[in-house]
């Protein structure tokens, strides 16, 4: 009985220590990434190449999802708003939900699934096939050559993707609200413009997406770098990337939103 309790406690302790250790390791890794970042700016083509892989190749999924999210928002919003006789406010509803929340958050979640997993798998495989070791033996730091360019590419791509998401979402909402439902186009835009604040809504949305960009890309990179160099290790790391990125995005979103609303 006593030993069973002790075992449970030991299990908890082990996990806590384990996670703390990993967290510490990840912070040290983050520091390395920052220290070696100079390389990714001095040799910009490395970073540009990664922007292609993380940003450009994520465009399709981001744009298509944004379009549908915008249309659904308009349909649902109209359904509720018309009960209160204020269906013109649909533009406000669509734009505010997209710019403040859905744009940054959904983009980050899709990014984690599309680009994050690709980064983790690629780096994990490079490690498993000794490419990173080989680089080290050639006196080239893998953090400078492989990790830092991917990090900055992700941080750069995320706000652009989020802005595109919001914009296309608003267009989707417009297409449903105005031609399909018959809301007045002038009211749609003017009410939206009156209520969406540049500083409070749009800039805050961009700040969120930059933070999500840092979090998602970093998690993907760390999991790849930390993955055991086996097929199973890489596949587990990929899963962890999605789970951890999603949790980080949603948690950070809550924290940032509460600060932004209070301030």
């Amino acid at each position: 009985m006593f030993s069973a309790v002790a075992n449970v406690l030991r299990g908890i302790g082990h996990r806590v220590v384990d996670n703390l250790w990993r967290f510490g390791a990840s912070m040290r890794f983050f520091l390395y990434v920052l220290i070696y970042s100079g390389e990714s700016f001095r040799r910009l083509h490395l970073t540009i190449r990664e922007i292609y892989f993380t940003g450009v190749l994520s465009l399709i999924i981001i744009l298509v999802s944004a379009f549908f999210v915008g249309m659904v928002l308009a349909l649902q919003g109209y359904n509720t708003l018309q009960r209160y006789g204020s269906s013109e406010a649909i533009g406000v509803l669509v734009a505010l939900s997209l710019v403040r929340e859905l744009g940054p958050v959904v983009t980050a979640l899709l990014f984690a699934g599309r680009a994050g997993t690709a980064i983790t798998a690629e780096i994990g495989l490079m490690k498993a096939t000794e490419q990173l070791s080989a680089m080290e033996m050639m006196a080239v730091s893998p953090v400078a050559r492989v990790v830092a360019p991917r990090f900055w590419a992700g941080v750069f791509s995320m706000p652009l993707l989020a802005a595109l998401f919001s914009m296309v979402g608003v267009l989707g909402g417009y297409l449903v609200a105005v031609p399909l439902i018959g809301v007045d186009a002038g009211a749609f835009w003017s009410q939206m413009q009156a209520s969406v604040d540049f500083r409070e809504d749009i800039v805050n949305g961009v700040i969120k997406s930059v933070v999500f960009g840092i979090a998602c890309t970093f998690i993907a990179l760390f999991e790849g770098f930390d993955a055991p160099p086996t097929a199973e290790g890489v596949s587990r790391a990929t899963t962890r990337t999605v789970v951890n990125s999603s949790l980080a995005v949603l948690g950070l979103d809550f924290v940032m939103t509460s600060f932004m609303i209070v301030a």
């Binding site: 490079m126 096939t129 000794e130 490419q131 070791s133 080989a134 033996m137 006196a139």
Partner: peptide
């Protein structure tokens, strides 16, 4: 110093470890 030493070395890895 380590970088300098490594520049004097070349290493062939088991599976080649070419950059894919």
């Amino acid at each position: 110093g380590l970088q300098a030493l490594r520049r004097k070395m070349g290493m062939l890895f088991q599976q080649g470890a070419l950059f894919t």
